[in-house]
Simulated scan of single mutants.
Amino acid sequence: MARLLLAPGFWLGAWAWDEVADVLRAHGDEVRALTLPGLDPDDENRLDATLSMQAQAIVDAVPADETVVLVSHSGGGACAYMATDLAPERFSHSIYVDTSPLPNGFVINSALDLAVREYPLPDWPQLEAEGNSLDGLGEAMLAAFKERAVSEPTGIAGGPLELSDRTARLSVPTTIICNSFTAEMVVKLRDAGELPMFSELARIDAEYIDLPTGHWPMWSKPKELADLIHTVANR
Rank of each mutant, 00 (worst) to 15 (best):
A49Q: 06
E128T: 14
L195R: 14
L12R: 07
S74P: 03
D210I: 00
L102C: 01
Q56S: 01
N45P: 11
A111Y: 01
A33V: 03
S180V: 10
L121N: 13
L51T: 00
D43L: 13
V107H: 01
A83C: 06
A80G: 15
V107L: 01
H73Y: 06
M218I: 12
Y208A: 03
P37F: 05
A157I: 03
V69Y: 02
A61H: 11
H27M: 05
N104M: 07
G158R: 00
R25N: 03
G9F: 05
L195D: 14
V232F: 09
L121F: 03
N45T: 15
T182E: 09
L6N: 05
F106W: 03
F10S: 12
R203V: 05
D48M: 13
G214T: 15
D123P: 02
P153Y: 04
D205R: 11
N179A: 15
A168C: 08
D135I: 10
M1R: 04
L228P: 04
N132H: 15
N104H: 14
P63Y: 05
A157W: 06
A183R: 09
L228M: 11
F106S: 00
S74D: 08
W17L: 04
E66D: 01
S199M: 09
G77N: 09
I209C: 03
K146N: 11
K188V: 13
T167H: 05
D113T: 08
A149W: 07
E89D: 02
L142Q: 09
T99N: 13
R166A: 10
L134R: 13
V31Q: 14
E184Y: 12
S171I: 00
K221M: 12
H93Y: 04
L161Q: 01
P8N: 12
M82K: 02
T175S: 14
L86M: 07
A33W: 07
A49K: 10
D205S: 13
W11G: 12
M82S: 07
E207A: 07
L5R: 12
T175Q: 04
A206F: 06
G9L: 01
N179I: 06
L121I: 11
A80Y: 05
Y96G: 00
E130T: 10
L228Q: 04
W216I: 15
A233V: 04
A80W: 08
A202R: 02
L12E: 07
V97N: 11
E152C: 07
P160G: 01
A149F: 12
E139S: 10
T213F: 14
P222N: 08
I108W: 07
G193P: 14
